[in-house]
Every structure is written in C-alpha cells, then in structure tokens.
Design a binder for these strands. Sequence first.
RNA 1: GGGCAAGUGGCGGAAUUGGUAUACGCGCUAGUCUUAGGAACUAGUUCUUCACGGAUUGAGGGUUCGAGUCCCUCCUUGCCCACCA
Length: 791
Amino acid sequence: MSTENHFYNHKKQDPKWQKQWLKDETYKTAQKSTKKKMYVLDMFPYPSGAGLHVGHPRGYIASDVFARMKRMQGYNVLHPMGYDAFGLPAEQYAVKHKVHPRKAVEVNVKTFERQLGSIGLSFDWSRKINTTDPEYYKWTQWIFLKLYDSWYDTKKNKARPIKELIEILSKKKEWKTYTKKEKEDILMGYRLAYQGYSEVNWCPGLGTVLANDEIVDGKSERGGFPVEKKIMRQWFMRITAYADRLLSGLDGLDWPEAIKTIQRNWIGKSEGHEVTFKVVGSIVEDASIVVYTTRLDTLNGVTFMAVSKNHPLAGAYFDQTKEWLDDHTGEKKGILIAGVHAIHPDSKKQIPIYVTNYVLSTYGTGAVMGVPDMDERDYAFAEKYKIEVTKVNFENADIVAKRIKANATSTYKMRDAVFARQRYWGEPIPLRHNADGTITPLKASELPLMLPNVKSYEPTGTGESPLAAIKSWVKEGYETNTMPGWSSSSWYFLRYMDPTNTKAVTSPAAVKMWKQVDVYVGGAEHATGHLLYARFWNKFLYDIGIAVTEEPFKKFRNQGMILGPDNRKMSKSWGNVINPDECIDTYGTDAFRMYEMFIGPFDSSMPWSTESIIGSRRFVDRVWRLHEKILAQSKTVKSTVKVQSLLHKTIKKVTDDIENFNFNTVVSAYMILLNGIEEESISQSDFEAFIVLIAPFAISISEEIWKNFGHTTSVHLAAWPTYNAKKVVEESVTIGIQVNGKLRGEISVTSEEEEKDVIEKALAIIAQHIEGKSVKKTIYVKGKIISVVIA
RNA sequence: GGGCAAGUGGCGGAAUUGGUAUACGCGCUAGUCUUAGGAACUAGUUCUUCACGGAUUGAGGGUUCGAGUCCCUCCUUGCCCACCA
C-alpha cells in the first residue's frame, strides 16, 4: 500500500481548487447586496522585480483570514488588490535595461499575480487597479486640480473653491489695482496645491536631489560626492491647513496606539505665545522681532535673542552665515548683530541679538528668546559668547501674556508636503505655464494628460525631469515635474469601490455603500507618509463631497517584519532571503499560511524558521488522516462531552482571536482541539464544524474534505460556526490550593458546591502544611483558586 | 537629546479583569514500525536534586492572601523623531 492516502497531496489539490474558485467566482464581491458590508484592505504593493519574499504575504494572509471569516459570517466583503506601480525602481530598471518602465511593470505584475495566487488569497480580481493606467491616473490628476482650485477657510474649517476666495478678495479696493500675475501670486498663497520654492540637498556629482539620510558628513552616501544646498522650484500640498483635523481625527480611530503617537509627534502641536520684542539701532524703522515660546513664564530670564540665518534682521550677515550651510558638526555658532538691540518688554533693558545656525527658519517665527538660566542649550550658547545669565523668577504665563500683550498661538512641527519629483515615471502634473508667469490648469475634459514617451529615462543632470528635454512637451508649457509616489496611494481605497467608473473618482452610490475601509492592514513604516497623506486627501475629498467619512481607515493593524533565519532583515546582500514559492512547493499553501500566522504575534518582528514550518505541515497531515478515519466510522458515533466542550471553547476563541488579529493563538487553539479529538471521539457533524473553523487558514484541504463529506458548495461560503455557552460548561474543574501564597495542592470542585464545603475539603488536603499553625483567613475564588493564610 | 515599545526554557512564543507560569509548535532524548530512512508513530523534555524538596518570567525594592501582569528605581534591546524654542 502506498503512503499516498495518508498524506495530503498539496501539489494536486492546491492548484485544482485555486482554478475552481476562480471559475466559480467564489470570492466575487456583490455590487448590490442586502448583507452588511465589510471592506478589508491591504496596502497595495509596489511590484518590484525581485518578487515576494516570505515577509511580504504576512499582512495579506492576515487580512485574507479576516476577510474569509467575515464572508462566512454573512458579510458582503470587499477585498481587492492592485498595484502602485509608479516610482523610482521601475525607472532605474528602465535606465539599466533600455526598456520602457511600463514593460518592467508588466513583467513584475505577472510575477506578483502568480505568487499571490499560489498563496490562495481571496481577492476579487475583477476590481484590480494599476496606478500607472491612464484611466486611473486621470483621476489622480483630477483630484490634483481640485486641490489646486481650493483654499482652506479657517473659520468654517473646511476647503472651499478658490473662486469663492476671489469673490471675497475682489470686495477689497486694492484687488482691482493688481495685475493678473500679482493676483495669481496672492492666490498661490492660499491654494491647497501650490507652487513654491524650497531648499534641497543638491548633489552635482550625482545630478540629483538627496534626502537627509542619504548624506553622511556632508557627502553623498552613494559615491561620496559633495552635497550643497540649492533653492528649487517645487509643488507643495498645504497639509498644514489640516493639521488640527489630522490630530483630532486620531482620537476616534481604532489604530495601534504606537502609530497614533508617531502621527501626533509628527504633527507636533505645541501651545505657546508669540512675544514681540522692539528693536533699536536698526536701519529699519520700528523694527521688531517676534519670537515663539512655550515658556512665557520664564520671560524675565531672557538675556539674548537668537534668529535664524533667513530672518529679515540677519539679511546683512548672509555672506558670513553662508559657510554654516554645509556645517554638519552640530556645533552651535552665532554672530552678534553689532549696534542693534532688542528691548526686554518688562525691564526695558537692551539685549544682544545673534544670527545663529541652530534656530530653524521653518519652525515658529524663526527667532528664539534666549533664557540661559532655564535652558541648557541657551546656557551653553551664553557661556560661549559671554552673555549675561539672569536668574529666572517664574511668573504665571497668562498674567505675563496680558501685561505684555502676547498672543497665545499653536505651532506645528509638520511642514507642507513637497509634491513634485524631478523624474519621468510618475503622473504628469496637469498644468500649463504661460509666458507671463501665470499658470493655466487643464480642464477636466483634457484629462488624462498622458505621460509622453521619451528617448532617455536618465536624470538630466540639471535636476530637471526628463520631461524637460522633450521639445513638444515644453512648447505646450506643460509642467515638467511629475507627482510623487504618494499621490496615487492617497485615494486608491475609494477607487476599488467602483474601479471602472469613467465619469467620476467613484460613483456616489458606491461610496454610500462602502463608506470607508473597515479594516486596513499594512506596515508601520508608513506612519508618517502614506497613512498621513491618505488621511489628508480623504479629508479634502470629504470637504468637497466625494468621500462620505472624514477618515479613510476605521481600523488599522500593522504587521511586524519577518526577518531572515539569522535574525537580520531579509536582503539579497545578506543572502538570507526565503522565497515563498519554494516553501509552498514543499509544504503546500495551507501549511505555509498557517505557519506565517503561527510564527508569532502579528505585529511583532520575528525571524523565519525553516525548521518550524514542519509543525504546520504535520497539522495538515493529521487533519487529513483524521478525516479518513471519520469517513470510515459509523454515522452514529457521537462526540464525547470533553470534545464538545473543547470544540465550543475553540469556536469562541478562534472567532474572538481572528477579530482581534491574534492569529498565532488561533493556530495553537486548532492544534489543542485536534489533540483532543485524536484522544477521544467526535461526530461527523462536529468534525465538519472543525473543518469550517480551519477553512480561513487551511483553504484547500478544508475544501477537499468538505467535498468528501458530500457538500456541493464551497466551504468558504459555509456558515461560520456559532459558540454555544451551554456546551462549554464542564462538570468539574481542578483548581489550586495556596498556603501563604505557595501552591500546596489541588482539588477538583463542581460548580454547585458550597464555598464552606470546598474550603473544608481543601483544608483536609493541605493539612500537613497547617500542622501546628492556625488558619487566619481563607479565600475562595470560584473556578480559580483557594488561598489559605496561616500563622 | 526627546518619544514609544519590549525583556518568560535550547528556539518562536502562551497566560480573559492580578488567581495552578512555561499552553501550542520547533528542536532535543528514548523507544516503535522499518533492509534503511523521516517531513511516520509513542513517551519524555524550565532549572537544580539519586530522591524528598527547592528555585524560576532582565536586576533590585514595594503593594497584595496571591504579581509575568500593578507601582518605584535601575539595566539591556528594538523602533520612531531629532538643533522643534
């Protein structure tokens, strides 16, 4: 006899069922339904050339298990997948292999689809989206135009059309006296998408802009070329207008506290005061410095002023401060502005003013009051430049504010987001630059503005996008920057609701039906990027009546990273990358999915163990053998009381744990139940409940067994078992007996027994430990413990 | 420098509101079936001790009948932000 029958043949069953589910449209989402809705979403992947390693599917499997349980509980589940395919890697691939980035994307998407398919994820593939598809980025451009055409009304606390601002402004007399360009410049200061200038780290050697963490000791990390500051034209998103709403919106979200904290810190709201110091000795008449402080109560300790190099008062000192620009030593330096003094509002004393390298021009007012007695950094600076130190007499900030007329204000650390990349492979920004310096946005009917073909995807070396090298593009006056990677991912969750709509971002009916993402799953590394930008765009889309909820993601869970077996981050350079294809080939989809979830708590990082996965495979084989036994057993076999109790406990635990994303304990609960069944006996109907219970994890073996028991519809559409509290109650439980906190014995008690009887029996059991002492106190916690105190 | 997590066997980890710490799995040990083998089966496996017993959740202290869980001090590791006034 071959061993074939006693092992589950995953190589045959996995592909068979995967084909069948596609054919039967088992996981298709109903566009109309009377069922309750459930929108379960994964962060869509960037389809990289390397394909998936075993870390990637962890989140997908978790959300898939969750979606499957919800589907079986009778929800109409929306569980889609797509690709976020614009971005640098595809462009670099194109540069290297001299092919269009679209080609790279096509090939990579194919690899991803095959891998996601072999993991058996229950996506409704008919809703697939790809951000590089013109039918998709048309709407990304459309939203950009809406942002360009909006301003933020701080009184109504929402975005409004720019034409309403023009109406307000045109009531002022001087508005008519402005030129078209001047009017545009004023409006640019209000638009939610606006053009501006920012200082960037420019590396002439690489011909590219670098992020702060790509610079080591003033040189580029890659190549070691010198880096300098350069002012560049950019597009920005006025996310700061939404700072307060982004902050307060966090309170109502079911997100990990750690992620909420990161966002709160990133927004960085602080409450303080703006204090005006009069300035004497300046050539500017009635000059003054406004500082922002959170410690107005220390005002009488102020002995100097520190301003940033960009502060108006520092203007004349620019040449001297220039050398600081490339100073990465972190040493605090200052230059005294000779002959100019600030006047302390209380003492009227003249205090010195320094241009410094440590005051940020982008935070607060770009000027700081120095209180050396109070602040260590101020003290260090005062000591270095021999500045007087005055002892602080703390005074109530509100009283000080009233006396010197300081305004209470809030300040945020968050800055407006740069919304431009000097790259080819991104969405074109749908605007024309006119000869007079004004801008004409494209009409909605002109969208999509298609990305043109170029001869070379190489960076131009001037910092401009390759689009700047296309004559016809430039001749039309089109913007040569493209949108950043986060543009298309900031609204894609709305597109899945109605992915083929040609008339709108998504139809009002679809938004009304799906509202928002109920459960979102993805990596914690997006805390201050995607997760913040998406909230911002969604709030804007809510303001203009497209989204129906202010927040896009009601519940969010983030998966921990899976490390290599050597406890290091998986990467080619360490040679510790584990490929899911090989695991699935050896152990099967079911064992792979179970192990991915069993490996540890969903949100913590853990190393992959090539040895441990065998445990999940053994589970699958044991279930297979057990099903053979049940098929052969008499139909009259009943479950023992213990098995029944265990089954219902497991139903409760599995249901609760999947709901709470405690997947590792779900798998151990399955194993405990299986151990219990193997020791005793189980009826066929109870065993079928067990099969339904494991179906979200072990997707194909459960389907095959379900079929073998004579069912003709999919186990994945079967009703989720419900827990019966009556069946859980066990006749008696064994509890411990403690004497002075130490465990000294145990006793079996029934739920009906009276407390005094139980204690009497317990005292008899531990009599030897009491000998010669008196019992001072006894505590009986029903079903838990008996505690005896002796002295 | 600031903020946030987390420290439990050889390993991954479990432990509802404080209530029998070490579930479940890997590995390991012994045995069974086998010509052989294991990705099979059975039994055992926190440490210490021949045993009775004793000890144990990073270290130390506290609250409590009872602490992995709560409080204080310290140590270690990881993550995020970082000249933020």
